[in-house]
Amino acid sequence: MADKNIDLGRLVIRAFNIKAVTWGDDNIVMPSGEMTISKKVLPDIISDMDAVESVDMRLIQPDEHDQFTNTILDIIPISTKALGAIGEGITHTLTGVCAMITAVDTDGKQCHEFGSTEGNLKEKVIFDRPGTPASGDVIISFDVILKSGMGQERKGPYQAHLICDRFLQIFREQMKGFDGKLCTERSEFHNIARPGKKRVVIIREVAGQGAMYDMQLFPHEPSGVEGGRSIIDMGNMPVFVTPNEYRDGILHSMQ
């Protein structure tokens, strides 16, 4: 029997390094590495959200970690599909920048259940881990104020994530059209079947208990929210994803 490897699919990730993130009149990202941020779309973004009191944004430059932050809900890569569905085709992603969501309610109650990271940012994050910003990254922070008690209800943290997702979509639409040749880094991943080798699965038990303790799956965009569905709404039952879907961001941590 011929036990040769079978290539089940390819994912290309093109990274565009962002050199400078500054405030500007519009939300614009350029493949050459300039990014400007404007808060003016925020009122529109939250206009249909009944759990959100208000939202503000901070740009945290690498030398500005010495500042207060509310509890951190998530750190999110800024990626979009340029071709194909999540897990296949081509993804455009930004390096040197990432998004962060923090949330507290109008009573000052932090949006957390088992421990909060509110405090001085530099003491509350171990930088340079897979799940945390690099020390040199610019952090675009979405600081959400939820209505009283909404930090402990599912829709509070969900809407906080949705604010960030809708905002990032403005950049994603621009990134889809980036000229691939201008990328600073290109990675290629293959789902490889190795017939005859030990068959192994990774089983991950993830959050499923409600409020911020949730996992969003199958969003429209990598690491996105919109279009996805919650593992709680699927009864917490197992779902299967391929290695490339996983590393392309087919899941979004809601906690």
């Binding site: 897979p130 991943f189 490889i192 079947a193 190795r194 017939p195 005859g196 080798k197 030990k198 068959r199 192994v200 699965v201 990774i202 089983i203 991950r204 038990e205 993830v206 959050a207 499923g208 208990q209 949730d214 996992m215 799956l217 593992i231 709680i232 699927m234 917490n236 039952m237 197992p238 779902v239 299967f240 994803v241 391929t242 290695p243 996983y246 590393r247 899941l251």
Partner: peptide
């Protein structure tokens, strides 16, 4: 994810995929 990177790169392993389930 370091776990996925490590296992998918191991030539002795046929990684079938990732099963996720929620902790209710």
């Amino acid at each position: 994810d370091p776990l996925l990177d490590l296992i998918s790169a191991d030539v002795d392993i046929d990684l079938l995929g990732i099963i996720l389930f929620g902790s209710s």
